[in-house]
Design a protein around this nucleic acid. Sequence first.
RNA 1: GGAGGGGUUGGGGAGCGGUCAAACCCAUCAGACUGUAAAUCUGACGCCUCAGGCUUCGCAGGUUCGAAUCCUGCCCCCUCCA
Length: 416
Amino acid sequence: MSELKSEFLQILTERGYIHQATDLAALDAKMAEGPITAYVGFDCTASSLHVGNLVSIMMLRRLQQAGHKPIVLLGGGTSRVGDPSGKDESRKLMTDEIIAGNMASIRSIFTQFLSFGDGTTDATMVNNGEWLDKLEYISFLRDVGPHFTINRMLTFDSVKLRLEREQPLTFLEFNYMILQAYDFMELGRRYGCSLQMGGSDQWGNIVNGIELARRIDGREMYGVTTPLITTADGKKMGKTADGAVWLNEASLPAYNYWQFWRNSHDADVGKFMRLFTDIPMDEVRRLEKLEGAEINDAKVILANAATAMCRGEAAAKAAEATARETFVKGGAGTDLPTIDVAAARLAGGINIVDLLVEAGLGASKGEVRRLVQQGGAKVNDVKVESIDQAVTAADLADGQIKLSAGKKRHALVKSA
RNA sequence: GGAGGGGUUGGGGAGCGGUCAAACCCAUCAGACUGUAAAUCUGACGCCUCAGGCUUCGCAGGUUCGAAUCCUGCCCCCUCCA
């Protein structure tokens, strides 16, 4: 895989998106010739996607930028079956209502990253329930069944791992890969889609689709997978103490999203810029070389770019302003988590431990007591000396009280 | 189906009648050092009305002054044999 001709694959390679690909040379030639249509599938297993899905979303964005057509496939149909990959246990079956709700919530995310419409390079959103829900069992079996041997299916990791560990794999789950393969073929028929992209765990599913389409339709299709993105200390990216880093504002406020990127490890700054922002490569190369305190500037640029893309320019600006106000000036930015407390209650004095728990800076009173005893709690940047201390209206400064747990976690209390 | 082994506090994993809220490691949180980084060092790490109390060791019973530790039943898991 020496010199690539197509802009898209050049960019993908340069920015670190490619893990595996089927017949890259042929795909490259095809993409250099003219626009193609490609898709990534997303299951509707949660009400929001998270940064783990971001690599795939960004690939679609790159695709569109390079003049090709992206399809976002929402797994309204496949979510009713459940992908068995990796997990030891079967996924719980989700109700149709939950799936529909998740799908509606996930849809909105994509408009931030792609431009939708009817133009040749406009993105399209499709729900595989459109065809999967209508399949007739016997005819489906006759059409598709002969092209899959059980022998082969048993060799795929998603199945093999489960069997090796003697974990049950239901027939329902076993069918997932067939349905995904069918999706790819169907997208080829309906939209002339010829490329499927996805995470490295999707490799088997993608290859199945390619083979199915070739056997039944004689259509040549391709697959590209992304590497599993890990952080510099070797962990799966996107896991924080509080859980996943969600893309939806409702699941994770912009300030926290911004902070996630701002707190990247030094060594990850360049990698993340390449994958998750549109910052030009020259700029990336310059910024990732910064050392010492200067790399912090690069982290801010990363956080701004990533947040702006997902949550909009205004949200990024507000988050940055709050971070600057809070961390650089030692004040309190408006984007910090805020709780309201009745004026009367505040006038009477509220125990600091109770207040910290209410503000979400600790999970239990015991935890917060420890925090105070270890000198990690602050009111208006003054260390709390005792767990018996009370916060009163006298602590209000500019109508608010700043609570801190450690150096990074802050919240505001407002009197209402 | 047969024979063994096991289910312990977020994860891993000790404990095998009292000194057990339960070793140790990881993760996590805080403090120091810094750059809102990493590494390192220190401390904490079930809940509460916190020098005291309460609820935990798969589930339900039982033995005992006293059980995570013993017994009975149930559920689940693993290994080997068929």
